[in-house]
Computed example of a mutant assay.
Amino acid sequence: MKVTVDLTRCQDHGQCAIAAPDVFRINDEGRLEYDGEPADDRRDDVEEAADVCPVQAILVED
């Protein structure tokens, strides 16, 4: 699975970090960091994170 976040759209709301904290996190500067190739067993959480993103900045691909 490949995860891409459009950082020009992302507004660092952090909803993804709540849905999938082992894949998405807000750093000390308040900016999003993420694992672009998480394990496939994290798919449900990653897809939930993409769904709850207020600006739909997360793309999940196989």
Results as ranks from 00 to 15, higher is better:
residue 16 C to W: 04
residue 20 A to E: 14
residue 1 M to Q: 08
residue 54 P to D: 09
residue 50 A to W: 09
residue 55 V to Y: 03
residue 15 Q to F: 14
residue 60 V to R: 13
residue 58 I to A: 03
residue 16 C to K: 02
residue 43 R to S: 11
residue 13 H to W: 15
residue 53 C to A: 03
residue 27 N to F: 00
residue 51 D to R: 11
residue 51 D to H: 14
residue 32 L to E: 05
residue 14 G to S: 04
residue 12 D to R: 08
residue 23 V to R: 10
residue 4 T to W: 00
residue 42 R to A: 15
residue 53 C to R: 11
residue 46 V to M: 04
residue 13 H to C: 12
residue 6 D to Q: 03
residue 26 I to R: 11
residue 54 P to M: 13
residue 51 D to E: 15
residue 37 E to L: 08
residue 26 I to D: 03
residue 25 R to V: 00
residue 36 G to V: 02
residue 32 L to I: 09
residue 6 D to Y: 08
residue 3 V to M: 09
residue 45 D to A: 15
residue 61 E to W: 03
residue 60 V to K: 06
residue 19 A to V: 05
residue 45 D to T: 04
residue 19 A to S: 14
residue 37 E to N: 12
residue 49 A to Y: 11
residue 43 R to F: 12
residue 55 V to L: 11
residue 35 D to H: 10
residue 14 G to T: 10
residue 18 I to V: 15
residue 42 R to P: 02
residue 34 Y to P: 04
residue 4 T to D: 09
residue 19 A to N: 12
residue 40 D to A: 12
residue 11 Q to F: 04
residue 34 Y to Q: 06
residue 58 I to P: 03
residue 4 T to Y: 09
residue 24 F to A: 00
residue 4 T to E: 13
residue 20 A to S: 08
residue 26 I to W: 06
residue 6 D to F: 02
residue 16 C to L: 08
residue 27 N to L: 02
residue 50 A to R: 05
residue 8 T to A: 15
residue 54 P to G: 12
residue 53 C to K: 05
residue 36 G to F: 06
residue 35 D to T: 09
residue 24 F to S: 01
residue 62 D to F: 11
residue 41 D to Q: 06
residue 29 E to W: 02
residue 7 L to P: 01
residue 45 D to S: 15
residue 14 G to L: 02
residue 34 Y to L: 13
residue 31 R to S: 05
residue 56 Q to T: 06
residue 10 C to A: 02
